[in-house]
Amino acid sequence: MAKNNSPSVASRLARWRWWIQAGFLFAWLDPFMIRMHTVCSPVFHCYSCPLATFACPIGVLANFSAIHLIPFAALGTLIFLGAAFGSFVCGWACPFGLLQDLMARIPTPKFTLPAWTGCFRYVSLIVFVFAIPFFLGEGHSLFFCRLCPAGALEGAVPSMAQAAIAGKAIVWPTAIKMVILGLFLLAVFFTWRPWCTLVCPLGAIYSLFDPISLFFLRFHKDRCKDCDRCRSLCRDRVRPEWRVDGLRCVRCLECTNCNAITVGTVFAHFDKKIDNSKDQNAG
């Protein structure tokens, strides 16, 4: 089979990831003051941000858990997008992920967290988003929104700045929220996407859909030369043949610069079979 060295569609698309993330930012941070806080967005962005267009899905899940109701609209949004795209939402649309990507570009030594640390996301989801609000209520100090650094950075800090400028009394967030924000701001310089990797409950939900999503990363063993290039391309330093569509993958598509990894749908599986049969006929 002739080798195809031209860059794949996915690797060409990966070069545009910054622009696509910035484009989505115009949806989440509406400068024209269109507020739709009755609608849940699919990304991690606190509604308290002065520019936030939509409501945060994790905030909705946690608050509805506190009032013992099922948020059908929010769940439907997450199920629909998760089943279609999986963690592509994390790598291509999430503004908090974009913030971490931008801050990671500052040249500081970067450390790779062990793969098992990704399990903390599920603890965060089950305990702080569902269990604590359900059993202890929205007023408990461990309610997720009272800990969230996105809320601190995107909501509390701008609100405090607005109050200070207007000469009004400043409402400070809780000490634990500020400590978590401080730790996050420190970690973001020394590891790639620490929030997404360690704690994000929304990423935990989307990663559950990765093994069954319509669009997925495909590893072609027959094209692999065992050069480990994919691992060096992956910012998380995981070997894609083990961890393609792994639980921590945000599908940034950096690894698709190697031809052994492509983005596919189930229909591409049949295309591969057609290519193989053509090669056999030519041979």
């Binding site: 949004t77 629909f80 279609a84 859909f209 069954i212």
Partner: peptide, 24 residues
């Protein structure tokens, strides 16, 4: 693979859209 990457996500997409419609 067809079930896992085609039928199952297709069903989930329909379920998600139905839930979104009902909730809204």
């Amino acid at each position: 693979t067809l079930v896992r990457r085609g039928i199952l996500p297709g069903l989930l997409i329909i379920v998600g859209l139905a839930s979104l419609n009902y909730g809204s």
